[in-house]
Design a binder for these strands. Structure first.
Lengths: 140, 140
DNA sequence: TCTTGCTTTGAAGTGCGCTTCATAGTTTAT
DNA sequence: ATAAACTATGAAGCGCACTTCAAAGCAAGA
């Protein structure tokens, strides 16, 4: 069993965030001591890490809550949950596509700067000249 | 030259967002007609698409503004810009790592559901039983 | 001409995901 | 015993990225 602070340290979240997640029902109700202090179990910690993972995937709080609600409603909701998980996966793929595009453009831009830095003569381009030069390179 | 509405249609943004980006100086000042209506040029459209791409990479408005400010200050800022672009790339890689992790977990979860659906006997698991089953699978 | 639709502006509003605050009780070390 | 550190709660606040609103002007077709 771990205190609020320990749980926070183990997950890299703050105690405030943990309370917030609990209030938003992303976590099961956390056990308490006699004096109402929270006691996080190993299972709780695992659960928190799952939520964290979903948040890293930019799954909104609301969706996570829905998913967990289904989870607590037992086996009859499996096919719904499978559908949600499939939607997460589709969304993840589209996010990754976006990042790939951004990464490609950004890497091209970096290569362009490397090249410019080799030629001090080009360092007085205006931003529009530079932009046009960059664009025309990309199109070739 | 394109009207506000046309520019919005071409980029998939709203006219309000385009005005917002301009106000935040993510775009160069857009040309106007006699009656102060905006006229977006092809270069403006390209520029908007670049901003859009950076936003897709979750680059904050503030960073984009900084970058563009450097851009307008000419060639002496090239090395600073190269550094910023490198930071974008590093951040993109870490975002993609997060997505990869989330994707792996999510796919595992999906496979788990597929399997469960094959065995109707397991459909009455409580959520904790299911969770433990899932966890123990992952560890093997 | 009149109506419908597009455009302008600044200001205020929205939704999300936390974070901070104020106040109060508990535990631990000295 | 007392100070320092940890915990609790509800409510308010914050930063971001837009979005919507209100009030007004311009434009193009029936």
């Amino acid at each position: 069993m771990y205190s609020a602070k320990e749980a926070a340290e183990m997950t890299g979240l703050t105690t405030a965030t943990l309370r917030y997640y609990e209030k938003e029902r992303l976590l099961p109700p956390i056990g308490r001591t006699e004096q109402r202090y929270r006691q996080y179990s190993d299972t709780d910690i695992e659960w928190i890490k799952m939520v964290q993972c979903l948040r890293m995937a930019n799954v909104p709080i609301r969706s996570i809550r829905e998913y967990i609600l289904l989870l607590t409603q037992g086996g009859r909701t499996i096919s719904q949950r499978r559908l949600m998980v499939q939607e997460y996966i589709d969304d993840l793929h589209s996010q990754m596509d976006n990042l790939q595009n951004a990464l490609a453009l950004t890497k091209k831009k970096l290569a362009f700067y490397e090249e410019l830095l080799q030629k001090p003569a080009t360092q007085d381009l205006t931003y529009l000249e530079e932009w046009n030069l960059f664009k025309s390179k990309g199109e070739s």
